[in-house]
Amino acid sequence: MKIFFYVVISGILVFGCATTKEKNMDLSVTNTASDTIRIANDSLEYEIIIIEPGFNVWLATQRPRGYYSEQFLETRNRIYVTEFNQRVLQPFRFNPNLYLQQINYEPTIHYGYEVNYLLYNYFLFFERKYHQRFIASRGGNY
């Protein structure tokens, strides 16, 4: 299971190494396996792969696409990524098996709604599954 998380983080890092291009960002979202989601644009400037048992089933129970604004998702993802990256740098304080490597999420890059929606929901899933809490102001039992 930990290997799946490593693959997810690696996928997140790949999509973070992109340049900014807002034209021709035709995203393709495919399910390559029952618990794998791949998001990429046609020119492969970035790619995110989420491989986590139960994520697809859990995602189907969450608020639908379009519920959140893109600005909301971008803001939350910046907060999540910053906190996640801080935890990567503190392996004695946080489980290094959960926080393997930093996520390169550039606030100046327009990743599009779909990437931000799935990344945000993955962080929510990660919080619940691994009993982690990133944003203290959010409610919920973990």
Rank of each mutant, 00 (worst) to 15 (best):
I79A: 02
N77F: 09
E127V: 08
A18P: 04
E114P: 00
T108H: 09
S69M: 08
P96I: 08
T108A: 08
G11N: 09
S28L: 13
V29H: 07
I49S: 04
D42N: 11
N56W: 00
R78Y: 09
Y113M: 09
G54C: 03
I103P: 05
T32N: 13
I39W: 06
N97S: 13
K2T: 11
Y113A: 01
P96G: 03
F126Q: 02
E70K: 14
F55V: 01
L118F: 15
N41P: 10
I39V: 10
Y67F: 15
P96S: 11
Q86M: 13
S137Q: 12
S34E: 14
Y46C: 06
V88C: 14
H131G: 02
Y6C: 06
W58N: 01
R128L: 15
Y111I: 03
A60L: 07
V29A: 09
Y68T: 06
Y80K: 00
R63Y: 08
T61D: 09
G54Y: 05
R128M: 14
I37A: 03
I50H: 01
A33T: 11
N31H: 13
T30M: 12
R38T: 14
S34Q: 13
F94K: 00
N24I: 00
N104Q: 06
I3A: 12
Y111S: 05
F55R: 00
G139L: 12
I37S: 07
I48A: 04
S34D: 14
F126Y: 15
